[in-house]
Design a protein around this nucleic acid. Structure first.
Length: 713
DNA sequence: TAATTAGCAATTTTT
DNA sequence: TTGCTAATTA
């Protein structure tokens, strides 16, 4: 026991050893949050307060769940089998498999990931013959479900909402008919079962005496209600989170849950973990000063016992290309000084920004790895393979049927499928069932496909999972198809990898059947990119960097309009969320932090002229060091062009002037809006209008004749 | 049925 | 500018 609690600081210790009452732990970045969470579980068990089976611990990612289990196993000589540790979705899946009857689901229900859901919605809209944006409908449905609302519960304010609610109702019917559930449905269905079934509810309430939640600031309304329902009046909730790192509001995360939790659970103990074990002093000062600009906070200040360390470096580049090539050189010099590339993170606000950075890195022969984009189980060929497996498990899965009926091509065209869909609709049956009634030429090719599905189902019934996958790859013709393709080598490799994935799954998971594997594939989208053995620079968005840390961090593209993103200005509370995002970026760094911005940037095929992000100004001067002379205008820039800090220009900067003395890129002063940069110009003479980026004041079109503009400093 | 082309829009994305 | 979808053509 002494061992467990060794080396905890006093706040961590207090959190770990809290008495049996609900608590909120405000855990700052790098404050040992996971350690507290896992030690708390281990301590409860070791002191006899709790049996492993009484633990319910919820995370947002599979990675975090695995990490938690590993750490608990390392601390205690017990099996973690009986614990419920997992993601909200994973745990709900487990619950619904166990109680599928009560939930009104088939035993082998399938899980739709976002991609599958979108496809299902598209199919539905087509069948209903309504003209609606699938994305819109998907957003509407998920938002409603996350509010805990069924179609009938949606408040109908106007015609548009009424239409969407109708689509929602039809979508739910379709899912029910096909035996599939989407991500939000996993949660909502579980919530509904627990609400109406008192026996089950009491059973789980009696079982999970302690409920622990990680990343609590990211919970949505439904997840919070789910937790509340499960906790009941007696159980103990231990919620760990950081309101300053709440960056997923656009996905439904509701920071307000933290305050609500304090009230609902009459939390007496709000413990703040403010000692940071990651970053050096100046970096933390920058983070603290920045986030202090936010009004809606629970309040927290990070500190460290490490020294102040290096200053925060600010680099101003002439263009996005300069930024990228400077970054490349800087990384090279860091590498020479002994830093591993994997210890360096390059962060940006949006994925589009990676392109130019990649270009520079690639030209310099610098190994890098980009996170984000397609993941293993999201790849097209894997989706196809999974569709065959889904049909083997449940032939009535229309989504899977449509996906692969004619892939590889076997003469089932759009017309055949339409005929089939009509027949299915008329008979109220699945496509698979309707297929036997089809006659003529179309009937023959469809029948051939049905035979493939049937033989797959029959042959794999008794086979172990990896062999099932192998048989499927052969029988479906997928392997043969990609082998014949010119550039199919990667896809063939990915498909073969699926056999390994199945083998790995039966080694690790408790259940070995096909539908468990399919659920796994839906819930765990897999690695972001095949891990390379080589040491590589890490490129990612700030969002995907959350939870990670690097010795050195480059935060790039810190410009008004980009970061904070211009779209955020339209959203309520948008700027504060952008600032939290910046806070996340800063707190990823251990010893060295670079903040970079460029004066011009190619965006959507046009050169944009940007001023530095306000977030840079919100960092105290005492902790920063400017690597470039503070430059105010493009006009002045020439003087610095040949200085050592500037890499060789790739191409001359283009600026146009319309005969009135002002030119694009020039800094100007306006009596009301202050300093800005001319971004665009139109007309000439008395018609001349200038578009000026005033940073905080926004982008404005001003008539030259009336605007009292003077050249800026 | 497949392949080409025009048009369009363009944050962030744990499951 | 890019990458995706929808419409058009061989």
């Amino acid at each position: 026991m002494q061992n467990l609690l060794e080396n905890l600081n006093s706040e961590q210790l207090a959190a770990v050893t809290l008495p049996d009452q609900s608590a909120l732990i405000l855990a700052g970045a790098g404050s040992g949050k996971t350690r507290v969470l896992t030690t708390r579980i281990a301590w409860l068990i070791q002191t006899g307060n709790l049996t492993p089976g009484g633990v319910l611990a919820v995370t947002f990612t599979n990675k975090a769940a695995r990490e938690m289990l590993t750490r608990i196993s390392a601390m205690l000589p017990i099996s973690t089998r009986g614990m419920w540790v997992g993601t909200f979705h994973g745990l709900c899946n487990r619950f619904l498999r166990a109680h599928h009857r009560d939930a009104g689901l088939p035993q082998l229900f399938q899980i739709l990931d976002s991609q599958d859901q979108q496809a299902a919605i598209k199919r539905l809209l087509k069948a209903l013959n309504v003209d609606e944006e699938p994305r819109e409908a998907q957003y509407f449905i998920n938002a409603a479900k996350e509010e805990g609302k069924r179609a009938k519960d949606v408040e109908i304010g106007d015609e548009i909402t009424r239409r969407k609610a109708e689509i929602y109702a039809a979508y739910d019917e379709q899912c029910q008919r096909e035996g599939v559930v989407d991500f939000a449905e996993l949660l909502l269905r579980t919530y509904e079962v627990l609400s109406r079934n008192e026996v089950l509810r009491e059973h789980y309430r009696a079982r999970f005496h302690h409920i622990l939640v990680d990343e609590f600031q990211d919970t949505n309304r439904l997840q919070y209600r789910w937790l509340k329902l499960l906790a009941g009046p007696k159980n103990v909730m231990f919620a760990v989170g950081d309101d300053d790192q709440s960056i997923y509001r656009f996905r439904g995360a509701n920071v307000g849950n933290m305050a609500e939790f304090e009230r609902d659970f009459r939390v007496e103990n709000v413990i703040r973990l403010e000692q940071n074990y990651r970053s050096q002093g100046n970096i933390l000062s920058a983070a603290n000063a920045l986030i202090a600009h936010n009004k809606k906070r629970l309040g927290k200040n990070l500190w460290t016992s490490a020294g102040s360390g290096e200053p925060v470096r600010i680099y101003e580049a002439q263009s996005d290309a300069y930024e990228a090539s400077w970054l490349t050189e800087e990384v090279q010099s860091l590498k020479r000084s002994g830093l591993r590339l994997a210890e360096i993170g390059v962060l940006y606000r949006s994925n589009a920004q990676s392109r130019i950075i990649e270009h520079a890195l690639f030209s310099a022969g610098m190994p890098y790895r980009v996170y984000g984009g397609l993941r293993y189980f999201e790849r097209m060929e894997i989706k196809h393979a999974l569709a065959y497996l889904r049909l083997a498990a449940n032939p009535d899965d229309d989504g899977a049927f449509l996906r692969v009926a004619n892939f590889p091509a076997r003469g089932i065209g759009a017309r055949s499928l339409e005929a089939l869909q009509d027949a299915a609709k008329a008979g109220g049956a699945s496509l698979y069932k309707a297929a036997s009634g089809l006659s003529g030429k179309a009937g023959a090719s469809v029948a051939a496909f049905v035979r493939i599905v049937d033989s797959l189902k029959a042959e794999t019934q008794q086979l172990p999972l990896p062999e099932t996958v192998e048989v499927m790859l052969e029988r479906s013709g997928l392997l043969a198809f990609y082998k014949a393709e010119r550039d199919g080598a990667d896809r063939v490799e990915n498909l073969n990898e699926l056999v390994n994935a199945a083998a790995a799954f039966i080694n690790e998971a408790e259940e070995h059947d096909l539908s468990a594997f399919l659920a796994h594939a839906s819930l765990e989208s897999g690695e972001n990119q095949a891990a390379e053995g080589t040491d590589a620079l890490q490129l990612m968005t700030v969002h995907s960097a959350k939870g990670l840390e690097f010795s050195a961090v480059f935060a790039t593209g810190l410009e008004e309009g980009l970061f904070p993103h211009e779209q955020s200005a339209l959203e309520d509370d948008g700027l504060e969320e952008e600032r939290r995002l910046m806070y996340v970026a800063i707190t990823r760094a251990r010893t060295r932090l670079y903040l970079c911005h460029a004066q011009t940037r190619m965006l959507h095929g046009q050169t944009r002229y940007n001023v530095a992000s306000r977030f840079i100004d919100e960092i105290p001067q005492e902790v920063v060091k400017r690597l470039t002379p503070p430059m105010r205008s493009v006009a002045e820039r020439g003087r610095f062009d040949d200085q050592a800090w500037a890499p060789a220009p790739e191409k001359a900067f283009k600026a146009k002037t319309a005969g009135h003395g002002f030119r694009i890129g020039q800094a100007v002063q306006h009596p009301k809006f202050g300093q800005g940069v001319i971004v665009n110009a139109e007309g000439s003479g008395t018609d001349a209008r200038l578009q000026i980026n005033f940073g905080k004041q926004g982008m404005k079109w001003l008539a030259l004749e009336y605007a009292k503009l003077t050249a800026g400093s």
